[in-house]
């Protein structure tokens, strides 16, 4: 039971990060129907920027809390600038182009950002400085670290704040109006370009926070770290219903749980020794080792994409996709 609880905790942590990144995908998609494949790279740039600042300040006598805050406060504007730059340089000129053009541009921007980061931060795995003691708490036999608690709580706060912005402010109303119908919104006096740019900026700011989360969780950063993370977050957004804010949050957490539980239990579930009837060959191996596993934990990364394929086949609009009116 403690193992199951532990996998749930692992999954929730992972899911919180996916959810924050998925929000960036879904907000942009909701407003201009563009899948911003460069979003994962923005997460990476956030992690790298924070790492640089934190490593630079570490050991300078500044209190650890201030150092971490400085790292986050440096990463957020840098990512916002990157997000705005992407929109301005790569996507705005293609606003009225066929939908495939901005999509391909997004993939191109992802490659460009990766290689710029490679030139700036080298090709090595960088150690994300651990300047805080990371206390481990045991709940019913399962371990949860301070970093994990911070990630989960912080992500919930961010989601709450974002929901408030989208549904309670003038900007949010403008975003929802632009998402509904840009032409009519413009007639109502909304500056659509500004709203779209702000959407990118908010998404990038979330990505920066996610980057710091991932970096401090794994203690490692690398210029390719954003790519697979981005694809998984995209899967999470599709799972929840792309364009739907609540859907991205739900999809993120669900995907994290699926991955953790999948990787944790696929080995046991496909252990041929548990079969009631075994061919001689299998029985012999089982007698010798006690296990004969068909699929092991190395399939961990496959689950996100199995989920993606499943959703696209059976429920393309995603779990919460029917509530079109709420997208922003």
């Amino acid at each position: 039971m403690d193992i199951f609880l532990q996998q749930i905790i692992n999954g929730l942590t992972l899911g919180a990060v996916y959810a924050i990144v998925a929000l960036g995908y879904t907000m942009v998609y909701g407003i201009i129907q563009l899948i911003n494949f460069a979003h994962g790279e923005v997460v990476m740039i956030g992690a790298m920027t924070a790492l640089t600042v934190i490593a630079g300040l570490a050991g300078s006598g500044v209190p650890p809390l201030v150092i971490v805050l400085a790292g986050v406060l440096a990463a957020v504007p840098v990512c916002m600038a990157v997000g705005y730059g992407l929109e301005r340089v790569a996507y705005r000129p293609l606003r009225h182009a066929p939908r495939l053009s901005p999509l391909i541009t997004a993939i191109g921007m992802s490659i460009v950002l990766q290689h710029v980061a490679m030139m700036v931060w080298s090709r090595n795995f960088l150690a994300f400085p651990q300047i805080f003691p990371n206390p481990v708490f045991f709940v019913g036999g399962a371990a949860i670290t301070g970093v994990q608690i911070t990630i989960i709580v912080l992500s919930l706060l961010i989601m709450g704040a974002l929901t408030a912005v989208v549904f309670r402010t003038r900007l949010g109303t403008a975003m929802r109006a632009t998402a509904e119908n840009p032409e009519v919104a413009r007639l109502m006096g909304i500056d659509c370009d500004r709203v779209i740019a702000l959407t990118f900026i908010i998404g990038a700011g979330l990505a920066a926070v996610a980057g710091v989360m991932v970096g401090s969780y794994y203690g490692i950063a690398h210029y390719t770290m954003g790519f697979v993370l981005g694809l998984k977050a995209f899967s999470a957004a599709v799972l929840g219903g792309i364009g739907n804010i609540a859907g991205a949050m739900l999809g993120g957490f669900l995907l994290g749980l699926v991955e953790a539980l999948g990787a944790g239990y696929i080995g046991d579930l496909t252990n041929l020794c548990h079969l009631p009837w075994q061919p001689d060959l299998v029985a012999a191996r089982c007698a010798a080792d006690g296990h004969l596993v068909l699929f092991g934990s190395n399939y961990q990364d496959v689950f996100a994409f199995l989920v993606l394929i499943g959703v696209l086949m059976f429920r393309p609009e995603g779990l919460l996709g029917e509530r079109v009116g709420q997208r922003a």
């Binding site: 692992n10 953790a260 944790g264 934990s297």
Partner: peptide, 10 residues
């Protein structure tokens, strides 16, 4: 691989 948590939990 950077996330070993699921494997290690098992």
């Amino acid at each position: 691989t950077t996330d070993w948590k699921a494997v290690l939990t098992k």
